[in-house]
C-alpha cells in the first residue's frame, strides 16, 4: 500500500487492520534505525525478561545452604536429556553466580522474551515519538501497563504465586483468570503497539510526512 493510498483512508475492518500493521511495521523499522529507540527496545526486553524471571521465581537469591555448599564463585548444573526436558517445559539447568541463582527453563524464557519484545517495541515507539516531540506524542504507560498481567501469572507447586504472596483464597474463577493473564497481556501489548504505530504514522504524516519515511 502506498502513502497515496493511505491518504484516502482505509475502508472496512480488514483494510484498517492492514493499514495499522503496515504503519506499525514501518514505525518499528524506524525505531530500529534510531539508536536511542533501538537501545530502549533491547534494554526493555532484557529488563522485562529479568523481572519476569524474578516474578515466576526462576531468578533469585540462593538459600544459605546452597551458597555454603557451592565450590567457587559460580556453577552450572545441567540435567540429563536437556532437550527432552526443555520440550516438556521443565528446567534444564541451574546457574549459580555467587549468591544469585537462575533456573533456566527454556519455555519460560521464551515467554518472557516474547512478551518482553512486545513491551520493548511499545517503549521503543514511545522513545521514537519522544525524540520527535514536535511531531508525535505517545505515552509509554500503556505499553508498560499491558506487560503487567503476565508478571502475575506465575504458579508455584500448588497454586498461583500471586494468591500465595497476597494471602488470598483462590476460587475457581480466580484460577481461570490466572490462566488468561498471559494471553491477555499479549493481546493488550499487540493492541497497544498497533495503536502506537497508527498514531505515530498519522501524526507524522499530518505534521511533516517525513518522520518515518524520512528515517
Amino acid at each position: 500500500m502506498s502513502r497515496e493510498h493511505e491518504a484516502e483512508g482505509p475502508r472496512g475492518p480488514a483494510a484498517v487492520a492492514a493499514t495499522a500493521l503496515m504503519r506499525t511495521r514501518r514505525a518499528l523499522t524506524a525505531s530500529l534505525a534510531d539508536r536511542v529507540a533501538a537501545a530502549v527496545l533491547v534494554a526493555s526486553t532484557v529488563g522485562y525478561a529479568l523481572v519476569y524471571a524474578v516474578a515466576v521465581r526462576d531468578l533469585g537469591v540462593a538459600s544459605r545452604a546452597t551458597v555454603a555448599s557451592g565450590d567457587g564463585l559460580g556453577s552450572v548444573t545441567v540435567v540429563e536429556a536437556p532437550l527432552r526436558r526443555a520440550l516438556s517445559g521443565e528446567g534444564v539447568a541451574l546457574v549459580a553466580l555467587g549468591p544469585v541463582e537462575y533456573l533456566f527453563v527454556p519455555a519460560t524464557l521464551a515467554v518472557a522474551v516474547g512478551i518482553g519484545l512486545l513491551v520493548g517495541a511499545n517503549l521503543a515507539l514511545s522513545a521514537l515519538a519522544w525524540r520527535q516531540p514536535a511531531v508525535c506524542d505517545i505515552s509509554p504507560a500503556s505499553g508498560l501497563a499491558a506487560g503487567l498481567p503476565a508478571l502475575l501469572s506465575g504458579t508455584a507447586c500448588c497454586g498461583p504465586l500471586v494468591f500465595i504472596v497476597l494471602g488470598l483464597q483462590a476460587t475457581s474463577a480466580a484460577l481461570t483468570a490466572i490462566a488468561w493473564l498471559r494471553p491477555a497481556a499479549v493481546l493488550l501489548l499487540v493492541a497497544s503497539l498497533l495503536w502506537a504505530g497508527w498514531r505515530l504514522d498519522v501524526q507524522s504524516s499530518a505534521s511533516s510526512g517525513k518522520m518515518l519515511s524520512g528515517m
Partner: peptide, 10 residues
C-alpha cells in the same frame, strides 16, 4: 531435576 531448592515459594 533442576530446581531452586531452598527457595520455598510458600
Amino acid at each position: 531435576y533442576a530446581k531452586r531448592y531452598g527457595s520455598d515459594p510458600y
